[in-house]
Amino acid sequence: MKRVLSILAAIGGLGLLAGAAAQTLGGFPIREPGAHAQPGGGQGAKPDQKGPLQIIVDVNGPGPYKSISKAVEDIAEGGVIYVMHGVYNESVTLDKSVFIQGDRGPGPGVEINAPMNQPCLRFHPKQGTAHAVVANVQFAAKLSSRGAPCVDIGSGVFTLKESDVLGSTVSPAVMISGGTVMLEKNRISSGSEGVLVNQNHTLSQSFIIDNKIGGNKVGVDIASGSRSDVVIAGNEIFDNLDSGVKSSGYGGASLIGNKIRNNKGAGVILDKYSKLALVRYNEIIRNEGDGVAVPFGANGIIEDNQIVGNEGLAIFIREGLRPKITNNFIQNNKGDGKKGRRSR
């Protein structure tokens, strides 16, 4: 318990849990329970929401909170839930601004196992400004016959970092259908898609940064109905059963500095409605299909990539619009022959 209190004190030292009446979490204001706020930010009005700003959850401990869902229900807007090591058999729904931190100390970690046909974590807040942050948690979805994703994000502002997401093979490990989303330094595997992006609103955005995405059917799939901008940067996307990255959406897709390797299909597919793609500084190597496939034509830029050792062509373009292709290092792709060259 001393370690938990010291960690919470450290968080408080960062300004998340200090006792001042006006604090922020993810850029959004939080207040101590009982603090009064006027419409202009002053004192005297009714409190926004009652409840503790700190809750410790321990499924194996003597405290009152053994369920993450119960802690989410009771926590004040903008509060912090610290989760101790253990296995939590539940589906967690977030509908407010909250920070969930898994225990970083030595031990087996924090694991959330979803019931059959339910998501491990669902974030669909009614207020679009709600911001949830989840860190250092392992999510595992049971085999699902109805396609429930393990992590389901529908609106608001959401950050998932330094976590493991294990899908159910017949549904996405992470499903993004709205909001502004940051996935950073996670391990994402065993989904029909590692990350499925299907954000219909043009102001939605997704940032998929520094993750390891492997062992899915498709690594990252930007669906044909998506109109959001998606940035995929610094990831390792590997050993997926189909393509590494497939972009079919109307929005802009930027693939920058990724290692896309050993996928059973193409490394990158710029598919039907992909018109604003940027593919730059990636290593696209040893995939069993083409390095980059453009089956229906696409605007955009493919430049400064290493496209090496793929079973198909380095860059396949069948018909329609041609992206600008320049300064790529191309070598040992079987569809091209083995001679090394740079694209112009």
Rank of each mutant, 00 (worst) to 15 (best):
L14I: 03
V80S: 04
F158S: 06
I188H: 02
G312C: 07
P172C: 05
E32R: 15
S189G: 00
A20E: 14
A173R: 08
D164C: 01
H131T: 15
E32F: 00
D95T: 11
E111F: 09
V279F: 04
R344F: 04
I302F: 09
G27S: 06
S168D: 15
Q118F: 03
V87W: 01
E236C: 00
G234E: 01
G257P: 03
T24L: 06
C150N: 12
S254V: 13
S204L: 08
Y65T: 06
G340R: 12
G107A: 06
G312H: 01
K2H: 10
S91L: 04
V151I: 15
G42A: 13
Q49V: 08
K50N: 06
L313E: 13
G51N: 06
G107T: 10
I315V: 15
S206I: 04
Q306E: 14
G154P: 04
I260K: 08
H131F: 15
V57S: 08
A20I: 09
L17R: 02
Q331E: 14
I284P: 02
L25S: 07
T93V: 13
K2R: 13
V181N: 08
G265Y: 02
G102R: 11
S6R: 11
I176P: 01
G128E: 14
N198I: 10
Q54I: 15
G234M: 01
D58H: 08
L14E: 12
A148L: 06
F329D: 09
K46N: 11
S247I: 04
Q43Y: 13
L183P: 03
D221F: 15
L313A: 10
K339T: 14
T159L: 08
I100G: 02
V157F: 02
R261P: 00
R104T: 13
N216G: 03
R3W: 05
I284C: 02
Q54H: 00
G61Y: 07
G128K: 15
R187T: 13
V80H: 02
A35F: 03
V174A: 07
I55L: 09
Q49Y: 01
K217P: 00
G178E: 02
A10M: 12
K324P: 00
F158L: 10
Q49P: 00
P47W: 06
G300K: 05
A130V: 07
N263Y: 11
D290H: 15
S155E: 12
G13T: 10
M116C: 00
L94V: 10
D229G: 07
G225R: 08
L53Y: 04
Y88N: 04
L203R: 12
S145W: 04
A114L: 05
G63C: 02
D304N: 14
S204F: 11
D239I: 00
F238Q: 08
P115D: 09
V230W: 03
G300Q: 05
N328E: 05
K334F: 12
G249E: 04
K96A: 03
E303A: 15
V165K: 09
S145I: 12
Q205S: 13
P149W: 11
I256K: 06
